[in-house]
Computed example of a mutant assay.
Amino acid sequence: MTEQILFACVQQCCYFKLSGELRYTNATGMDDLIDRLVSAKIQCRQLVVDLNQASFMDSTYIGLLASLARYCQQQALPKPVLFCTVPAVNELLFSLCLDQAFEIVQQPTDHAVELSSVQAAPYSDQQKGRMILQAHEALIALNEKNKTEFQPVVELLKQQLGE
């Protein structure tokens, strides 16, 4: 299954439905969506993420989810709700402590919201590198375990980006 990002904002509730293999190579659309959210181009008071059709997530995508959770914390919004029934994806989410940042619900969603497809944003190699770096920084900001695990990745990325 190819990766797909679907999104809707209804009555200031933002819905994200992510499916397929979620890798850094196809994360620019999601990153662009998060940028629009953070820059207040999208008005949001609550976040819902549906991962019920995700088959794989890499650390960059997990970091993008961590960015969403951080946004909610910074805006004093309720914890985002994340729906996922995929055992391998749930195992990854819990192992990287996303259960501290999200209300994880291990069941199907019943939201009948009309979602629109989000296309990949055209990023330069430098922009992709910065996106990967920021995602991993959000991931290590969650807790010490992630910091220990991903700090070398962050340092390497900073070195490669000349930061």
Rank of each mutant, 00 (worst) to 15 (best):
A54M: 05
V118A: 00
R45V: 06
N52D: 13
D110T: 10
E155K: 15
V38A: 11
L93Y: 04
F150S: 01
A88C: 07
Q106C: 12
C9A: 11
T109E: 09
L93K: 03
D58L: 05
Q100A: 12
T60R: 04
E144W: 07
L77E: 07
Q43R: 12
C13I: 15
E91N: 13
K128R: 12
A120E: 15
L77G: 04
E91Y: 10
G162Q: 09
D35M: 08
V118R: 00
S124D: 11
Q75D: 07
K17P: 00
D31W: 04
L6S: 07
Q12P: 05
E3G: 10
G162W: 09
Q107F: 01
A112M: 10
G29Y: 01
Q151S: 14
Q127D: 12
I5H: 08
V153Y: 14
V105F: 06
C72H: 07
D125W: 06
E114N: 10
G63P: 01
A76M: 09
Y61P: 01
V89T: 06
H136M: 06
A40L: 13
F56I: 01
G29M: 02
L47F: 08
L157N: 03
A54Q: 03
R130T: 08
S67Q: 14
M1C: 07
D99H: 13
Q43W: 08
C72Q: 12
C44R: 02
D58R: 06
M1Y: 10
Y71H: 14
L161H: 07
A88M: 11
L82V: 02
S95T: 11
D110L: 09
L82M: 14
N143A: 06
A27P: 04
N26D: 12
L64R: 01
T25M: 12
Q134M: 10
A135F: 04
L142G: 04
A88D: 13
C13V: 15
R45F: 08
D35H: 10
Q53R: 14
Q151N: 13
A40S: 14
E21I: 05
G29K: 02
V48S: 02
G162F: 06
I132K: 07
I140S: 10
T25V: 09
A76W: 08
V48A: 05
I104G: 02
P108S: 09
A135D: 03
Q100W: 10
F94R: 15
G29N: 04
L33C: 06
I140N: 04
E3Y: 07
L93N: 04
E137Q: 15
D125P: 00
H111D: 09
